[in-house]
């Protein structure tokens, strides 16, 4: 299953995703998608280095479903992290796109 890396940004705690350029971005659509286990390990390695530089906290791989442009996490918890609270759709990333 395709995967992305999620983490909390150190300075503000916002949920962020690692992109193709090794930068942390706010929208899961912009994240780098690992198509294989070795690729997943590779982006996790990059995330861990970023954690060591104290840029982010607690990075981990999440399973995602890719449908054209859209990227959607599989688990409820990660769907909510990526979008925002389900009871306040005016808040979080869901409010911005």
């Amino acid at each position: 299953m395709p995967q992305a890396v999620i983490a909390s940004r150190l300075r503000d705690g916002r949920a962020v995703f690692l992109d193709r350029n090794g930068r942390w971005v706010e929208f899961i659509q912009d994240s780098r998608i690992a198509q294989s286990e070795p690729e997943g390990e590779e982006i996790m390695e990059s995330a861990r280095r970023s954690e060591e530089r104290q840029e982010i906290v607690d990075p981990y791989l999440i399973d995602v479903v890719v449908d054209g442009e859209a990227v959607r996490p599989v688990l409820n918890r990660e769907i909510i992290r990526a979008a925002g609270p389900t009871i306040r759709t005016d808040l979080g990333r869901q409010a911005k796109r």
Binding site: D12, R14, V57
Partner: peptide, 24 residues
């Protein structure tokens, strides 16, 4: 970058600061 999360976490908790799904 002088303190790691492991070092900092007990300090922030002493002041009521948690890290949750969307933010602190």
């Amino acid at each position: 970058g002088e303190l790691s999360e492991d070092q900092f976490k007990p300090l922030r908790l002493l002041n009521g600061l948690y890290l949750q799904l969307h933010a602190y």
